[in-house]
Write a protein that binds this DNA or RNA. Structure first.
Length: 588
RNA sequence: GGGGGUGUAGUUCAGUUUGGUUAGAACGCUUGCCUGUCACGCAAGAGGUCGCGAGUUCGAGUCUCGUCACUCCCGCCA
């Protein structure tokens, strides 16, 4: 028996053909006389029929068939009478009358039903992932991922990019995420680190003269998991020589356009909009603004700086920020809803959430009484307050005010259903700060990574005021989610050393950790830069999923375990001895 | 490291508020009947460590404490 068709392709045009299909039993309907089987393969479902009048042996054998058995059937495509056509199915106009049946494999009753409308808990689905992957939704997600990856490869190939593999067994780099370590047997006591990204290798490839590199590559970070974070995840990583920000963005936009065309058959408009980091924080509170809706943050610090409401006045006096969001027409919010929003803001360290409901001729609010008429007028004008509105205030240190109100903005949009899954709003966020002061470690830390070039005009501030330097880094944000980020890199060894020094890494440490890069930069490095996209997140958005686990074939749980293989697991004593590793007593 | 949610039949859940007879439903499964179903139908049946452990009580799925797993979030993730 040799397969002639997939279970998706038979139509009226195939009537009377002898065909062979192979696949899994989706469903069995035994009418005593006639037996219907929905046969499923990767591509779709076709109904096959066993009729004792056509083949007595096949019909008898079909009696023992159960769900998820693996079959091969040979038969004739026959048309269905008009009143028996199933319009819900692509192949619903025909069916295959079987005259020969082969049962390749029996199957135990699956732990959960292989049907999209049946919900199973995620842990049971992860435990039997191969069954879960049989379901249409998950299968579609994986197919979408394949389509997107293929679109990426074709696009980048056509644009002169070369696919080059970089090592997984590599060197631990300071800063950034916690590394996954791999012990070296032949060098007892020493460890490789799995790459958090191929950053340094792709820069070395530029120095080597490959001009344009790309890779769809696994990256590893040993940090706590989230719905959109796995310990191993996939990047579309690329690097280009002799380019500036604009050229990289253009290439990246072209790639995104290609993905959306190939996967969703959607035509995106380019160029994508751009906003500077400072503007994004000012207007949206976050460095990854969701532009699908308004509700912008408005600074009212100057208006309330002398207000009788001491919370506001004191915050401004101490260098803080008072900002507000006017939720138009939402004065109907109940006390309970406001309390929930206050708790929500509290998650982001806001100490409170002040509010004013604008009524026809009065302001209903615990804080309205503290404002003078002038202050009220100023607020009214600045915030465009009209009857029926409710306005929320956060007053705190700038970082907290922006973060809390920015998150509140997203939450309000969710609650008010201002966001549509079918809208895709891209925005480039540019001019990130180069560094950020780390209060706990009492030193500056790179916001992007230590190899990001500072803006030319900010260069002289390296030794005087690092925090005010803007970098040549950019993120691509889609619907409030960062899907990619990159920068123009430093291509001068001297500048690289200066930046490392600024980050508190002295020459000795720099040489130990990045000596090879500093040396390479002295060997003739082209100006270069690049960008990396989180493939999992991108596919998650394309599939309208809430978690990247649903677009990864074999994802890990929140405790970074694999429910299918039970990894990680204990190593044999002999293995550990070979690796010169001793395990500290772990309480059982 | 911290906060929230969930855990009862193979699966998804109800039952827990207010402790009390034999822990229910749907789907799935098994058996029988059925020649036009496609969420087939009809009839019968099997199926439970109420996550685990301790405690309170005459009595615990239900209350208390601990613990484990899954999950969402904060911290963390250049």
């Amino acid at each position: 028996m040799k397969r002639t068709h997939h279970c998706c392709e038979l139509t009226d045009a195939d009537v009377d053909k002898k065909v062979v299909l192979m696949g899994w039993v989706q469903n069995r309907r035994d009418h005593g006389g006639v037996i219907f089987i929905d046969l499923r393969d990767r591509e779709g479902i076709t109904q096959v029929v066993f009729n004792p009048g056509v083949s007595k042996t096949a019909h008898e054998k079909a009696g023992e068939i159960r769900n998820e058995y693996v079959l091969g059937i040979k038969g004739t495509v026959i048309p269905r009478p008009d009143d028996m056509i199933n319009p819900k199915r692509k192949t619903g106009a025909v069916e295959v009358m079987v005259d020969e049946l082969s049962i390749f494999s029996k199957a135990e009753t699956p732990a959960f039903q292989i049907e999209d409308r049946i919900e199973a808990s995620e842990s049971i689905r992860l435990q039997y992932r191969y069954l879960d992957l049989r379901r249409q939704q998950l299968k579609n997600n994986i197919m979408t991922r394949h389509k997107a990856a293929t679109a990426v490869r074709n696009y980048l190939d056509q644009n002169g990019f070369i696919d080059i593999e970089t090592p997984f067994l590599t060197k631990s780099t300071p800063e950034g995420a916690r590394d996954y370590l791999v012990p070296s047997r032949v060098n007892p006591g020493e460890f490789y680190a799995l790459p958090q990204s191929p950053q340094l290798f792709k820069q070395l490839l530029m120095i080597a003269g490959f001009d344009r590199y790309y890779q769809i590559v696994k990256c590893f970070r040993d940090e706590d998991l989230r719905a959109d974070r796995q310990p191993e995840f996939t990047q579309i990583d690329m690097e280009l020589s002799f380019v500036d920000e604009k050229q990289i963005m253009t290439v990246a936009e072209g790639m995104i356009v290609e993905i959306f065309k190939k996967v969703l058959d959607m035509d995106l408009v380019t160029p994508f909009s751009q906003i500077t980091y400072d503007q994004a924080i000012e207007r949206f509170g976050l460095d990854r603004p969701d532009l699908r809706f308004g509700l912008e943050l408005i600074n009212v610090s100057d208006i309330v700086k002398d207000a009788g409401f001491k919370v506001f006045a004191n915050v401004v006096k101490n260098g803080g920020l008072v900002k507000a969001i006017n939720a138009k027409g939402c004065a109907t919010f109940t006390r309970k809803q406001i309390d929930e929003l206050t708790d929500f803001a509290g998650v982001y360290k806001a100490k409170g959430l002040a509010w004013i409901k604008i009524k026809e001729d009065t302001w209903q609010s615990p804080i309205a009484k503290f404002f003078t008429d002038e202050e009220k007028d100023a607020l009214k004008n600045r915030l465009d307050l009209q009857p029926g509105d409710i306005v929320f205030f956060v007053a705190d240190q700038p970082k907290i005010t922006n973060e809390a109100l920015g998150q509140l903005r997203n939450e309000l949009a969710r609650r008010l259903e201002l966001v549509s899954n079918d809208t895709y709003e891209f925005v480039w966020v540019t001019h990130f700060p180069l560094v950020e002061y780390d209060e706990t470690e009492k030193r500056y830390q790179a916001l992007h990574h230590p190899f990001t070039a500072p803006l030319e005009e900010d260069m002289e501030k390296l030794s005087t005021d690092p925090a005010s330097i803007k970098s040549r880094a950019y993120d691509l944000v889609l619907n409030g989610i960062e899907i990619g980020g990159g920068s123009i890199r430093i291509h001068s060894s001297e500048l690289q050393q200066k930046v490392l020094k600024c980050l508190g890494i002295d020459d000795k440490e720099a040489n130990e950790k990045f000596g090879f890069l500093l040396t390479a930069l002295k060997s003739g490095a082209p100006p270069h830069g690049g960008i990396a996209f989180g493939l999992d997140r991108l596919i998650m958005l394309l599939c309208k999923e809430d978690s990247i686990r649903n677009v990864i074939a074999f994802p890990k749980t929140q405790k970074a375990t694999c429910m299918l293989t039970q990894a990680p697991s204990k190593a044999a004593t002999a293995q550990l001895q070979e690796l010169a590793i001793k395990i500290n007593k772990i309480e059982e």
